[in-house]
């Protein structure tokens, strides 16, 4: 009886971690997995492959859950999504096989380090997010016509119909291949890379980018999931708890996002994420005994680096905002 109670509490604590991850992930736009993997591996002591496995499953759940809400608004572009999925799914196969390789060769510390680097790298576009809604006008190129990348949606906030032309389909495909690889390797949706591919490379409006990316994330994660399943990276107890938690957290995160008017609150969450990123890199070296640091010192180092990192981003961002306002 006592044991049962302890296990129920353990389950609930993982669900709670999932809620937190889903909430922060959806508020910052990075997705639940980006928070979930460090949370499970650093604070819950879950082996990294189980953490990535649980995260991949949770990523499908959140993507499917929120895409069902988004697609009703008809902003997501299904043609662009399916076209780019060719590259992300191939990337996901490569990425998840890479994880299997690293796991079999006792190189899992590399997963921590790559995860940390990707996490810190994703913060840079996350900071810029929500500042420019519409891309600069560019002329359609040959891929616009062949791959039918033009579209139209109604923007409720700008109160007008927005026409857009996607360009450089090939560049989008190349970036999506890497996004897929990262997703398969780290068990995350890699929404930041997907947004980069569509926003920067293909010059699509932010709304189209985020909704289409959300719809694609599930398909990419599903590709890697079966490989993860047969490699034994999905621990059912953990995966069940996180999937439930992340779905709940993402739901509330999306609700809160609409209500939060003070943009500065996002900086607190971005700071937490940068701490997790640095901590993952250090943890990678520590687990494999490449370096030895006492946990307390390790946390302190992570905090200091994270604070510096986020301060640089904050100041850089403020200067940009000011220069935009001056115009």
């Amino acid at each position: 009886m006592y044991e049962l109670l302890a296990i129920i509490l353990k389950f609930i604590s993982i669900v709670f971690g999932g809620i937190l991850a889903g909430f922060i992930g959806s508020l910052t736009g990075l997705g639940g997995g980006t928070v979930l993997v460090p949370l499970l591996s650093i604070f819950y002591g879950v082996p990294i492959v189980f953490a990535t496995g649980a995260s991949l499953i949770s990523t499908i759940a959140t993507s499917a859950g929120s895409a069902s809400a988004y697609t009703k608004e008809k902003i997501a572009n299904i043609k662009i999504g399916v076209g780019l999925e060719v590259a992300t799914t191939i990337g996901a196969v490569v990425g998840s096989l890479l994880t299997v390789y690293l796991d079999h060769h006792a190189l899992t510390w590399l997963i921590y380090v790559i995860f940390g680097i990707v996490l810190l790298g994703s913060l840079v576009p996350a900071v810029k997010r929500g500042q420019s809604e519409l891309p600069p006008h560019t002329r359609p190129d040959w891929t616009t016509r062949i791959f039918e990348l033009s579209g139209k949606y109604h923007d409720a906030r700008l109160k007008k119909d927005v026409d857009y032309n996607g360009i450089r389909w090939w560049l989008g495909e190349i970036i999506m291949f890497f996004a897929g690889t990262v997703s398969g390797l780290l068990g995350i949706g890699s929404g930041a890379l997907k947004v980069l591919g569509m926003d920067w490379a293909m010059n699509l409006p932010m709304k189209v980018t985020t909704t289409t990316s959300n719809f694609m994330i599930g398909i990419t994660a599903a590709t890697g999931s079966s490989i993860y399943w047969y490699s034994g990276y999905i621990q059912i107890f953990i995966a069940a708890a996180t999937a439930i938690g992340v779905v709940i957290g993402a739901y509330f995160g999306a609700k809160a996002l609409v209500k939060i008017t003070n943009k500065d609150i996002r900086w607190i969450f971005l700071a937490i994420l940068s701490f997790l990123g640095v901590e993952m890199i250090i943890r990678g070296f520590v687990t494999d005994n490449i370096i030895f640091i006492v946990p307390l010192i390790q946390f302190l180092i992570s905090i200091v680096i994270a604070v510096v990192f986020i301060a640089v981003l904050y100041l850089h961002n403020m200067r940009r905002v000011r220069s935009v306002e001056a115009l």
Binding site: I60, G81, V82, A222
Partner: peptide, 19 residues
């Protein structure tokens, strides 16, 4: 649990089929 997780894995695939 396994059935539920596989339903989840197949869910996004139906989207591609519908498309």
């Amino acid at each position: 649990v396994a059935f539920g997780l596989w339903v989840l894995i197949f869910t996004p695939i139906t989207v591609v089929v519908i498309a």
